[in-house]
């Protein structure tokens, strides 16, 4: 176990190094002089000289990279040029909003995707299987921002049941918070539910054809117990770990969902930063999400290792 953990941790170091190189390299993509690009409309030589000095643009590339990494390792992701605040503070401020949205979306994805996958596998080749597969294709093919519009049209404009946009902190008013988050969470969870359904279906089909399921049936167990206790329990192991890998899709989707429903989270932060040419914020958000993805990936691998006795042996 320890050897596996150490080997897995050792692989993270070069990955994180290359992540940092890619993200630092983004700045080099700016056409022309980055100082001019950062200055935007402002062409005052003094301002440009200040930017050049502040972001070490007057230093050689390797030195700039070293300074940037040293800053990152000390929790300094730079400063937003728009609102003059540390990028890390901005990310930490927006993180709870996106975390709530992602958490609720994952609940929807699990509540829809897993039962649909089980049903599809157990009723393989029937109209239920066909229906679940149609649902998966629908989920994978619907752009979530368009689904957001359709839901706003139905539930906000036509029926007037839910607010079309806005965010209320759960600490202020939990009811209003859930009312505002239910549509965005469903929109975001829809595509993940489709992926989960496919994972669950595939894992269940595999598990249901194994000898121990045949034995369980031969013992005379009720089919519900065979499916839920013997089948699903074993099929869920790869499903849950694969689910952790959907984190990237969740964050990508959150960018669009937050834009549609005007939720002040992580996604809105990066989009606003892009339009304000706030490049430090863009870099900070990409670095933060990539690091979170790597850590979640590691945790998923460890969980898979822990719950799978064959790997431990």
């Amino acid at each position: 176990m320890l050897a596996y953990l150490l080997r897995r941790l050792a692989l993270i170091v070069p990955t994180l190094f290359f992540v940092s190189v890619i993200i630092f390299g983004l700045q080099q993509l700016l056409p022309g002089d980055p100082a001019l690009a950062m200055a935007g409309e402002e062409r005052d030589p003094q301002v440009i000289a200040f930017i050049r000095h502040k972001y070490h643009l007057d230093q050689p590339l390797p030195v700039r990279y070293g300074l940037w990494v040293a800053g990152v390792l000390h929790g300094d992701l730079g400063e937003s040029i728009r609102i003059n605040r540390p990028v890390l503070d901005l990310i930490l401020e927006k993180l709870p909003v996106t975390a709530e949205l992602a958490g609720l979306a994952m609940c929807f994805a699990l509540l829809i995707g897993i039962p649909a996958g089980v049903l599809s596998a157990v009723k393989n080749g029937t109209v239920w299987d066909y229906g679940a597969n149609v649902f998966a294709l629908w989920g994978l093919s619907t752009p979530n921002f368009w689904l957001g519009f359709l839901m706003i049209l139905l539930f906000s404009v036509q029926l007037g049941l839910l607010p079309a946009s806005g965010f209320v902190s759960p600490f202020e008013d939990l009811r209003q918070n859930l009312g505002a988050m239910i549509m965005p969470a469903f929109v975001l969870g829809n595509a993940i539910a489709a992926v989960m359904m496919r994972h669950t279906r595939s894992a269940m089909l595999q598990v249901m054809s194994t000898d121990y399921i045949r034995t369980a049936r031969a013992k005379g167990l009720v089919e519900r117990i065979v499916v839920l206790k013997h089948g699903l329990r074993n099929a869920l192991v790869p499903v849950v770990t694969l689910g952790a890998l959907e984190f990237g899709q969740l964050l990508s989707g959150a960018v669009l969902t937050e834009q549609v429903f005007t939720i002040p989270g992580f996604g809105k932060l990066i989009v606003d930063a892009v339009f304000n040419r706030d490049y430090a914020v863009v870099q900070g958000v990409v670095l933060f999400t990539a690091t979170a993805y790597i850590v979640l990936n590691l945790l998923a691998d460890i969980a898979y290792f822990l719950v799978n006795p064959r790997l431990r042996a």
Partner: peptide, 24 residues
């Protein structure tokens, strides 16, 4: 593979947004 892992670690759309933002 480590470089590929690093690229895979950046969520697809977020990386595309960042690249599009820096490229124009």
């Amino acid at each position: 593979m480590r470089i590929t892992d690093a690229m895979l670690a950046c969520p697809f759309l977020i990386l595309a947004i960042a690249l599009a933002a820096f490229l124009g």
